[in-house]
Design a binder for these strands. Structure first.
Lengths: 131, 131
DNA sequence: GTAAAACTTGAAGCTGACTTTAAGTCAAGG
DNA sequence: CCTTGACTTAAAGTCAGCTTCAAGTTTTAC
């Protein structure tokens, strides 16, 4: 499989695949005549990376994700610290977004002319300040 | 009030206040001897903007937020479209994060050596692909 | 009156994650 | 064999949202 096919299969632009390889998120691909060749599971690995990315992993965190795989070591074991930390971050982020959702609700119910005299907005501002 | 006092009151760096003015998120402040002077409610307006920002509004969206205020028009009315759209965005993002949380859970319970043979990860990837 | 602190501006620099460009190399079809 | 399309690289450009810098001006305190 060359990079174009992998791009089509994974839904990522080829430029992104090259970029991920360049910064070490992907291992260096084997070359034939200078061009990258990928095994059949490459798309699967990319899918895992896309999953990780959409789970809020940054590229530098993702660099460590695929390294664990190999004979003798169960990767999830290596992932545990990373994943638990990320779980906490996700929980925090969900809580924050829910708070935002409530604030937007409250502002929508507001009916006043002046910012300064708006109790709902003031309350929201207080709530915000307390985080 | 000069920019330094406003910075202390709002908790924002002066550089950010200047930047927000420059890109039109804040109206141009009145000047005395070339230096910005602010009325007492300026900090409150900044707080509203910080609130909006932490509700996920980007700066270009925030540009419209303070415009509604003035005699005769209730700002929340103007905000409704923006806010409802943002509510939808927030709901989507919350749903996404919850899905991510489940996926990280699942990966943590995984116990296999190879990506390709991992049913849990594969299932997560499917779930990802379906969004 | 003078020195320090705070202000002013425009421009450049920063981070993260790419995308685009330029100039060149390789591969597949006819 | 030749054209066309896909590939290669390094380097520069992009976006958001600032921060930092340099050089100069204004205010404030003594």
């Amino acid at each position: 499989m060359n990079i174009g096919e992998l791009a089509r299969e994974s839904g990522l632009p080829a430029s992104t695949i090259r970029y991920w390889e360049k910064i070490g998120v992907l291992p260096k691909a084997a070359r034939i005549g200078g061009q990258r060749r990928y095994a059949a599971d490459a798309a699967h690995r990319l899918a895992v990376l896309q999953l990780a990315q959409s789970c809020g992993f940054r590229l530098d965190e993702m660099r460590h994700l695929l390294h664990g795989f190999g004979p003798g070591v169960k990767p999830p074991h290596r992932w545990q610290e990373l994943a638990r930390k990320k779980q906490q971050e996700l929980d925090d982020q969900i809580a924050r977004l829910k708070a935002m959702r409530r604030l937007v609700d409250r502002v929508l119910q507001c009916d006043c002319f002046e910012l300064a005299e708006c109790g709902r907005i003031a309350a929201s501002v207080m709530e915000l300040a307390s985080r």
